[in-house]
Amino acid sequence: MGRALKTSDSLSYKLIDDKDVFMLISTVREGIKYNMFQNIADKSPFSTSEWSNYLHLSERTFQRYKKEKRTFDPLHSEKILEITLVYNKGIEVFGDKDNFDAWLEAKNVALGGIRPKELLDSTFGIGLLRDELMRIEHGVLA
């Protein structure tokens, strides 16, 4: 159908058009290979333990994926891409990786007093973060 995402492709909400949506769908259907995930993980502030929590995989299973260079199934692949997109959006909104990483770690009143990165384990939480980043971007602070 469409071409899949390559390690060199950059993911940003701002840059996604209809063609890119089909590329993301294709990537999810094919699954993300562990080496591509590792490239994504290396650019994020999240530990292996956090990634395994976000993807609802045990750390042992996660280590097996790494050892066997497995491909993540579509559900896990989609979550990896969603987290990557919201992370890249956060860097764009905050203008700097370090500032966004600090925001992810700090308890947030607008998000019910929890740390934003604690919301990355569900699609609803990721959507909440995306909405909050849009409010920040447009100067609408709750």
Rank of each mutant, 00 (worst) to 15 (best):
R3P: 06
K6A: 09
D9G: 11
D9I: 08
L11R: 04
S12H: 04
L15Y: 04
I16N: 00
D18K: 12
K19P: 01
D20P: 00
V21N: 13
V21K: 11
F22E: 15
I25L: 15
S26Q: 13
T27H: 03
T27E: 09
T27W: 03
V28N: 07
R29Y: 06
I32C: 06
I32F: 00
K33E: 12
F37S: 02
A41D: 13
D42R: 14
D42F: 07
D42L: 15
P45I: 12
P45C: 09
F46Y: 14
T48H: 11
S49R: 14
S52R: 08
S52L: 08
N53D: 11
L57E: 13
E59H: 11
R60V: 15
R60H: 14
T61N: 08
F62Q: 00
Q63D: 12
Q63M: 12
Q63R: 12
R64C: 07
R64G: 14
Y65T: 07
Y65H: 13
E68F: 04
K69R: 02
R70C: 14
F72D: 02
D73F: 09
L75T: 15
E78P: 08
E78C: 13
E78T: 03
I80E: 00
L81K: 07
L81I: 12
E82I: 02
T84V: 14
L85T: 01
L85Y: 00
Y87E: 01
I91K: 10
V93E: 03
G95V: 08
D96A: 08
D98A: 13
N99Q: 14
D101M: 08
D101K: 05
A102W: 06
A102C: 08
A102F: 02
A102R: 10
W103A: 04
W103Y: 09
L104Q: 08
V109W: 00
V109D: 10
V109G: 03
A110E: 15
L111A: 07
L111K: 05
G112C: 02
G112D: 01
G112A: 07
E118N: 08
L120R: 03
D121V: 05
T123V: 14
T123P: 01
F124A: 15
G125D: 14
I126W: 01
G127P: 00
G127I: 12
L128E: 11
L128Y: 02
R130I: 12
D131W: 01
L133K: 04
M134Y: 05
M134E: 13
M134P: 01
R135V: 00
I136T: 12
E137L: 10
G139C: 05
A142Q: 11
A142V: 06
A142N: 11
